[in-house]
Design a protein around this nucleic acid. Structure first.
Length: 545
DNA sequence: AAGTTATGATACC
DNA sequence: TGGTATCCCTAACT
């Protein structure tokens, strides 16, 4: 009864299989799960190729891999399990020679850990900022706790996929959401039905939002329409701080889009960055640009993220499509004045300082790796660790971003959605992963049988045990069913993850998750959410027995 | 129930 | 360097 995994034939075998003679019987490499259900409903396509003398025109119904176009194997879903094309590099770690199924990172308990580099006292960051930041560092590492079960509320009011989320800084039950169309949603998830959608603030993708540190009723937003808006949440009245396309559409070469955004309260300035590599500073009082745009990333490349250090706002972190995250000193901000360049192998979707000390950096890159720099005062040439995790780029999905848990003083917990699916009890699901960034361990994975879409947008509540997620056009709020229960497991590392009740888990039927009694676009579920026990490895873990 | 579509990074010339 | 063909686990629609 426990979740069953249908491990179908291993790709390697399928290659050989050409003449239908022996079905994939010679399969042993399927570590564990010998329950090779042959009941694969393959409607065998036999090779009619050899019919009579007619030779040349072979409309063979043989298996052709849709990925590499070669014959003898097929990539794609077999039931709820995805079979990789064996001709391609691993979809998880990107290395050739194996597939996701046998990827070492799917099995290892720790992941591609790069040794922490030795301390380098030449680091300019240290020189400039250490004295200000050091007293903030917390040496204590309290346990964080993740509940066994969570309740999930669902709402769908966006007409395009969700792109960003933000919790209200003082009202614990308000979640803001932005979408690809530029709409801004305000959801009171306590009174689940209450929501407001502002549709006229932006005309295309809302890339980033940030509350005004000076006024928690005001929200700033940066959009691909090239404007920065400031909206009063009560009235919906919005003003435009800057518009980079005052003359409208003059072609793609000149249309400027705003991506990264953050606010420096001390300087009273809103920072935004565009798709051509430039950073702009906007005075939040006069609503006017101060100074000139500064090129902070490769010319012509998107700057998708900006983050001011939580304790030294003059320390700025940027990241973008030029495969770099970069550290800047705002007091000396000009092209070429960069403090450090953090190199990645692909586009960097996000880069964040750690929430408490501000001395760690966590980045998400499209090379399927999370990177952690343990201290900005160290040698920043290479990360302290790389964690292989599936969060690939897909043009139809909002880019994944690993987010710190803002409540974890040990600065070791991060949340990020997972791209590749896992076969959970017969359905392919894409969990939301909680990762210990010190060890690479997958601490928890949240999923719900009702949610079959990928969930790239996730944010943890700054004060409560609440996770907000955006998946396609839907929003989710996950909250503990009960206050956490530490009775059984006390190991700090072994956070009890969802579905702590192992026995019950397998027994749950569809009815346990009450049906989305649609009141049109909206539904609430007060139901259990599938959860997994603490696991050891990163990306995939087979559902147990 | 197959096919369509929106749409972004990248490899390659 | 720029233009373009290509592309592996999408999701919501017809």
């Amino acid at each position: 009864m426990a979740p069953q995994v249908r491990r179908t034939a291993f790709p390697k075998v399928l290659i050989e299989r050409d003449t239908d003679s022996e079905q994939s019987s010679s399969d042993d490499d399927d570590e564990e799960e010998e329950q090779e259900n042959e009941n694969e409903e393959k409607t065998e396509e036999f090779n009619d190729t050899k019919k009579k003398g007619k030779s040349p025109i072979t409309i063979s119904l043989k298996k052709v891999c849709k990925v590499c176009k070669k014959m003898g194997h097929e990539a794609g879903f077999k039931g709820a399990t995805y079979i990789d094309c064996p001709m391609k590099p691993c979809f998880l770690c990107k290395m050739p020679g194996h597939t996701t199924m046998t990827c070492p990172h799917r099995v290892a308990t720790e992941h591609g850990v790069v040794p922490a580099p030795h301390v380098n006292t030449q680091n300019p960051v240290e020189f400039v900022f250490k004295r200000q930041l050091k007293p903030r560092i917390t040496p204590i590492k309290p346990a964080y706790v993740i509940p066994d079960q969570v309740d999930c509320a669902v709402i769908r009011y966006h007409s395009r996929r969700v792109t960003c989320l933000e919790f209200h800084p003082t009202n614990n039950h308000i979640l803001l959401s932005g979408d690809k169309k530029g709409q801004l949603g305000v959801w009171d998830f306590e009174k689940v039905h209450e929501k407001t959608v502002y549709g006229n603030i932006h005309s295309c993708i809302l890339n980033n939002m940030r509350f005004s540190p000076a006024n928690d009723g005001m929200i700033y937003a940066a959009s691909s329409d090239g404007t920065v808006s400031c909206t009063d949440l009560e009235t919906g009245i919005s003003s435009t701080l800057m518009n980079l396309n005052p003359d409208g559409w003059q072609g793609p070469g000149s249309w400027r889009m705003l991506y990264g955004m953050d606010i420096n309260l001390e300087r009273g300035v809103v920072l935004v960055a565009d798709n051509f590599g430039f950073l702009y500073l906007v005075d939040s009082r006069s609503n006017s640009q101060t100074g000139k745009a500064i090129m902070i990333h490769k010319k012509g490349s998107k700057v998708v993220g900006l983050h001011c250090n939580p304790f030294q706002p003059d320390l700025l972190l940027s990241c973008g499509n030029d495969h770099f995250a970069r550290l800047w000193d705002m007091r000396r901000l000009e092209a070429g004045s960069v403090l450090a360049n953090l190199e990645h192998r692909r586009v960097v979707n996000s880069a964040y300082f750690s929430p408490f000390s501000g001395t760690k950096i966590l980045t998400t890159s499209q090379d399927n790796r999370l990177r952690i720099w343990d201290s900005i005062f160290r040698d920043l040439d290479s990360p302290s660790r790389e964690i292989v995790h599936s969060h690939d780029f897909n043009r139809h999905l909002t880019p994944f971003r690993a987010e710190w848990d803002p409540k974890d003083p040990s600065e070791s917990l991060a949340v990020i959605g997972r791209y590749i699916s896992e076969n959970y009890n017969g359905t392919a699901l894409h969990p939301i992963d909680f990762i210990d960034i010190n060890t690479g361990q997958l601490v928890a994975e949240v999923m719900d049988p009702n949610i079959t879409t990928i969930t790239p947008v996730n944010k943890l509540h700054p004060r409560d045990d609440v996770l907000a997620s955006g998946s396609s056009r839907s929003l989710f709020i996950w909250r503990p069913k009960e206050k956490f229960d530490v009775s059984e497991q006390s190991d700090v590392r072994k956070i009890i993850v969802f579905g702590g009740d192992e026995k019950k888990r397998g027994k749950r039927s569809k009815d346990d998750y009450d049906d989305d009694s649609d009141d049109d676009k909206f539904n609430v579920k007060g139901k259990n959410v599938k959860v997994k026990k603490p696991v050891k490895q990163m990306t995939h873990r087979k559902a147990k027995r």
